[in-house]
């Protein structure tokens, strides 16, 4: 008899031994379906109501449904403006979130790459520049030299960006 404590090991061994009988089996995706959510976010950002969803379930529902759909058609121009405004906000917010996500990814990669001897310093927004001699003036916007080591945590210089909104730099990897 197999004990309950031994059952999982036996099942794993049997799965290994009979693998070819099962053919190709993809592993279980564990956790919430974030991939499906991400894939559909843009679609959800643009409201797309359909007039066919407008109905009435009352006893004299048919004329009420007809009236409601007529009102929606009459108000189409107004609703189109509302939807355009809302879609603009949704898409820009979504784009902003994606930008943030990319920055977090970059941060995580930088942290993973950092060795204990060379800690990554996450600076406030700053344009990454080639190593600069402190006496030589403000940094240029030249790309970072990865071999130059971690960036300093010096405060941002707004003048370093043409429109005054400095890029954010993450450990010289961005």
């Amino acid at each position: 008899m197999t004990t309950p404590e031994d059952a999982l090991d036996r099942a794993r061994a049997a799965a290994h031994a009979r693998r070819d009988r099962y053919g190709e089996v993809s592993p279980t995706r564990l956790g919430p379906p974030y991939d499906r959510i991400r894939a559909r976010l843009s679609e959800w950002a643009v409201p797309d109501p359909t007039g066919y969803e407008i109905r009435s379930v009352r006893r004299v529902g048919a004329p009420i449904t007809w009236l409601k759909r007529g009102l929606v058609r009459l108000l189409y121009q107004f609703h189109a403006q509302l939807i355009a405004d809302q879609s603009r906000f949704n898409l820009l917010a979504l784009n902003y979130v994606r930008t943030l996500e990319e920055r977090i990814d970059a941060l995580e990669r930088a942290l993973a790459d950092a060795t204990p001897a060379t800690p990554v310093v996450v600076a406030t927004p700053v344009v990454v520049a080639a190593p600069v001699d402190a006496a030589a003036g403000p940094p240029s916007s030249a790309p970072a030299d990865p071999a130059a080591g971690p960036p300093s945590s010096a405060p941002a210089d707004p003048a370093a960006h043409p429109d005054g909104a400095p890029e954010t730099s993450v450990g010289g990897l961005r």
Binding site: A7, L8, R10, A11, A14, A15
Partner: peptide
């Protein structure tokens, strides 16, 4: 691995 689950059912 769903195969492990299948083998547990068999067991």
């Amino acid at each position: 691995d769903p195969v492990v689950v299948a083998e547990l059912i068999a067991l």
